[in-house]
Design a protein around this nucleic acid. Structure first.
Length: 386
RNA sequence: GUGACUAUCGUUCAACGGUUAGGACUGCGGUUUGUGGUACCGCUAAUCUGGGUUCGAUUCCCAGUAGUCACC
């Protein structure tokens, strides 16, 4: 049975319905990052009310704290955090990479897996492809991601080629372990968790191609875009995103990991990507940046946004952002976004939110995060409808 | 009232007889893309007043003013 049924919306865009054991998801969809089994500062009920349909937890962080066995004894991460909609767990490959990248003393990548020291207590850990899968089964999530071997976009081709080869070997080990766990845990009768491979290859088309072909041969439910989708200067890497999407079979899910700004999500969807996750709505919300709709018409692709160099940095063609800590909002008694139906926008003013941030009130971060998540939910709704 | 001590960005601490007096916090902006993020990066902003010594004083001296503490 196909877990993802593709349809075309009125605009001829790629949309569909994804069946998971925790419910059906319309694609495209966005998942906020609940890295440590919480979207910082907001409750699961509030998340639901924002229109958030799924979220991402992190294998690396949860294995260190509170540990996957505790989550298992709690009844799985859904029960643990009181969230009954779909959950995807990221493998931790990216965390290990960024940890070691920042400080090589913190660990190393070997063929066996990722050896690293816990940032919490300095203890040594080994995260292998098999272990990452086992942990994700213990977490009892709906969607899993294989451990991969990301490299910086600036890495030379020889290094990227080795990373792709290792990612493929690890992907095979992950798939084997996945099948073993499905059998071991007797999950054959129910809807099994979905498994995603991750496409590495940096900026090199040949490597992206080699990686997708290898992964497709192993066969996954979906394929993620690994690495970063923007360069050092923050430029959107449209060519490689389009090319990589085109390599992935039409009927497989395409997961753009870590994407992104509302603009980047709209562009990635236009390039053929179905799933997104990012820290931006919550992190920027916590720091006082709010998304505000300008128009509910999302422009077709990137041509318009490309030559918008004259426009201010924060001003995109269908939305703008405000930094609520700016002095101009001190006596602004209007809502953050009059068209938004979130709690912040229907009950409070910009002046009040600015005040909450100024006095360091946690409520500020909560209201702002929820507003931004509401913005993202609406964005996905518009993309689904075309 | 007497004595001692102190006086530097809005606040709080540095420093120095000699180029643009430094930090922290606040203020004003900005950054954030598979969350080590209550994070990070800029910018603005000060030598109490009046004399004196000196080539040169924010620094040393005197007076004033203000504050703190102690004593009466």
């Amino acid at each position: 049975m196909l877990v993802w049924q593709q349809q075309k919306n009125s605009g001829g865009r790629r949309v569909g319905m994804l069946t998971t054991k925790s419910g059906v998801l319309q694609t495209p969809f966005f998942m906020p990052d609940a890295t440590r089994a919480t979207v910082r500062g907001v409750t699961s009920d509030e998340l639901k009310m924002s229109g958030t349909m799924a979220l991402v937890v992190n294998t690396y962080h949860l294995m260190l704290q509170p540990g996957e066995s505790l989550v298992r004894r709690a009844g799985g991460v859904h029960t643990f955090m009181h969230w009954d909609r779909p959950i995807l767990s990221d493998s931790g490959g990216y965390q290990v990479y960024s940890l070691i990248h920042k400080n090589p003393q913190m660990g190393r990548i070997t063929e066996e897996g990722a050896e690293f020291r816990s940032v919490l207590d300095g203890t040594k850990h080994l995260l292998t492809p098999e272990r990452a899968i086992q942990i994700q089964f213990d977490l009892d999530v709906d969607m899993m991601v294989v451990l991969d071997d990301p490299r910086p976009n600036s890495a030379p081709e020889t290094e990227v080629r080795e990373a792709v080869k290792r990612t493929l070997r690890w992907a095979q080990r992950s798939k084997t372990e996945y099948e073993k766990q499905v059998a071991l845990r007797g999950l054959t009768g129910e809807i099994r968790p979905l498994l995603f491979g991750v496409v590495q290859g940096g900026m090199f088309r040949e490597e992206r191609k080699r990686c997708v072909e290898g992964l497709v041969e192993i066969n996954f439910d979906g394929y993620g875009f690994g690495g970063r989708h923007i360069d050092m200067e923050g430029n959107f890497l449209e060519d490689i995103l389009l090319y990589t999407a085109s390599l992935i079979p039409e009927d497989s899910l395409r997961f753009a990991l870590g994407v992104g700004t509302p603009e980047d999500i709209a562009r990635c969807h236009a390039l053929g990507w179905d799933m997104f996750d990012c820290v931006i709505p919550t992190r920027e919300g916590r720091h006082g940046r709010l998304f505000v709709w300008k128009s509910e018409v999302i422009p077709s692709v990137s041509e318009e946004s490309r030559d918008s160099s004259a426009a201010p940095q924060n001003d995109r063609n269908f939305y703008t952002t405000i930094n609520i800590s700016n002095a101009q909002y001190e006596e602004d008694f209007s809502p953050v976004d009059p068209t938004c139906d979130c709690e912040l926008c229907t009950k409070y003013t910009r002046a009040y939110l600015k005040h909450l941030f100024k006095v360091g009130e946690p409520l500020a971060a909560r209201l702002a995060s929820l507003h931004n998540l509401r913005f993202y939910a609406k964005l996905m709704d518009l993309l689904q409808k075309g």
